[in-house]
Amino acid sequence: MAGTRPKRVAGRGRDAVLGVLGLLVVVGLAEALPRLGIVNDSYLPPASAMFAELVDQLGEAAFWTDLGATLRGWATGLAIAMAAGIVLGVVIGSVGFLRDLTASTIEFLRPIPSVALIPLVVLLYGSRPTSALILVVYASFWQILVQVLYGVADVDPVVRDTARSYRFSRLTTVRTVVWPTALPYVMTGFRLAASVALILEITAELIVGVPGLGKSIGVAQSSGAVEKTYALVIVVGIIGVTVNLVARALERRTLRWHVSIRKEAR
């Protein structure tokens, strides 16, 4: 369909322009509303002031320490949750007996809001990074576990039986049959868990006082540093967008061979 291609590309270009325009309008509004006095600038400072403060922050050592602490906490928690979720998911999912036995418990534990654990971790670890780590791992673990369980359940019974007839060892079956089927689900779980982990990391910093960007936002707000509050919120938003984009890019890359991605690319 060579004929439709340039049109589609042109459409995409127009979409991108509109998207940038949309962002500019929002920034413009954030600049105009306080300048015109429609919104009190001690609630919403002009966008230019936020960005100026943001640039100032980039020169501060404390900002980079906070950023590092937040990212480290997020990545460590996510990695632990990924490892635990995948291993347990594959084991539980592959053994029918375990699957039936644990289903009710998983269904009960999963919806428990991880923030319910905040008072407990505060008692146990105070504002040390361990507090944040526990919340992050708890919240993201379920996302991954459940996706892996769906993925393992999705294995084609004929393929599974074929592997058994050929006397594949358990490990080979997992590697060549279960894992490729479950991989798209694992990546979905990773994408969901990555953003949930960020939410919990920031929550722990904001509420419990674990060092990081969240804590600085809380401090900035309560000390009346309005521009800094907004600047840091923007930074956290940018981290969130980056996490989403990286997760999506990773998903595409690891699943390049998969039908769903091949179709999209065409």
Partner: peptide
């Protein structure tokens, strides 16, 4: 097309920092 990038940004802000 106009709204999507803006919405993506607001969605990516972890909700607790709204507080």
């Amino acid at each position: 097309a106009f709204c999507e990038p803006t919405l993506e940004f607001f969605r990516a802000v972890p909700p607790p920092v709204l507080v």
